[in-house]
Write a protein that binds this DNA or RNA. Structure first.
Length: 317
DNA sequence: ATGGTTTTTACTGCGTC
DNA sequence: GACGCGGTAAAAACCAT
């Protein structure tokens, strides 16, 4: 993955990391080269303890996303000593016992078990969502900071975890909806309720942690996100951003779903440039219906007296 | 609970290819 | 005739009170 970071295989322009979406994007042609910014940590997602041991490496830094900050010493499983000489069987047995007990002691208290559980879920969710490492670390740090401020016992682990990831995304300028996060964490039938609950927890965390203002995701982030997901022509994206910028002080966004408005900006921009993206495609990616896009388009066009024919065939005349 | 607002659903007709 | 679009009414969802 790292070798892709320097220049685009398509046009050889410089690549930039888009931390919003955890992607690496070409500054020239806008193509998404790598959908996950390289993570050089231990590659031990679902492996056994034994594999973890083999792959373990001293990284020289601590991590918030492990319950013990990732600083424990682990007893090697090798049957050779430091100098390469074979260890006799009795010592090997002793070391196996030691290792077993170390594991038991390591996550001994209920708090540690809880942290371990939460961070495992967090890790899985962040991997599935292709979130960069900094988001995961931020989420873990937020969760740690909850202790003493917000009571987590008795609350849904999934929803609390989702809420912290959501907050971490906002802090790291990554656009991810609560629903997207919850989709990766629970069964189909639970998504709705858990998402709702996570939203509730998120608000209470914001209140309790003394943050008067939650970070605000701006319109341009929504637009960039949707256009990245639809492989939109960069010119369309730029125009959409431009229109959004010019109309941002108006009241068309009040009380409306931001992704619907972002979708409408993109649609209007695509029509203006003769790109004719389909309402259906944009709406499915943006998570709104075509009707919503049409209504937001109407708002934008009437408000700004932009006289363009939305029907592409008419626009040519 | 309620009432106001927004979004979705489901359906319609129109023009174009 | 299929497709994409624009419109509408009613239902559903959401939110503050």
């Amino acid at each position: 993955m790292n070798m892709l970071k320097d220049s685009c295989p398509e046009c050889r322009a410089t690549l930039v990391d888009d931390i919003q979406n955890g992607e690496t994007i070409c500054s020239g042609c806008g193509v998404v080269v790598a959908d996950q910014i390289a993570d050089n940590g231990p590659e031990s997602l679902n492996s056994s303890m034994e594999d973890k041991m083999k792959l373990a490496r001293a990284t020289g830094h601590t991590t918030y996303s492990q319950h013990d900050l990732g600083i424990t010493t682990e007893i090697s499983i090798s049957t050779k000593d430091y100098s390469g000489n074979t260890i006799n069987n009795q010592v090997v047995r002793q070391m196996n016992n030691l290792r077993k007990w170390q594991q038991r002691v390591r996550v001994s208290t209920s708090r540690e078990r809880r942290l371990s559980n939460v961070f495992t879920k967090m890790n899985e969710a962040c991997n599935h969502l292709h979130l960069p490492k900094n988001v995961q670390e931020t989420a873990a740090m937020i969760y740690r900071n909850l202790e003493g401020h917000v009571e987590v016992k008795g609350k849904s682990v999934v929803s609390i975890t989702a809420a912290t990831i959501y907050m971490a995304c906002k802090q790291c300028d990554v656009v991810k909806s609560m629903e997207e996060i919850c989709k990766q964490m629970c069964e189909q039938k639970e998504i709705k309720s858990k998402t709702k609950l996570a939203g509730k927890y998120y608000r209470s965390i914001v209140m309790e942690m003394g943050q008067t203002t939650a970070p605000i995701v701006t319109m341009d982030k929504y637009i960039s996100k949707i256009s990245n997901m639809t492989q939109t022509d960069v010119r369309v994206e730029r125009l959409a951003l431009e229109i959004a910028q010019k109309t941002k002080d108006s009241s068309i966004a009040d009380g409306k779903a931001p992704n619907g408005i972002a979708a409408a900006y993109l649609y209007v921009a695509s029509v203006l440039l003769g790109q004719n993206m389909l309402q259906r495609d944009i709406s499915s990616v943006a998570g709104v219906t075509e009707v919503t896009i049409r209504n937001r388009c109407k708002d934008i066009l009437t408000k700004y007296k932009l006289k363009i024919a939305l029907r592409p065939s008419l626009a040519k005349q």
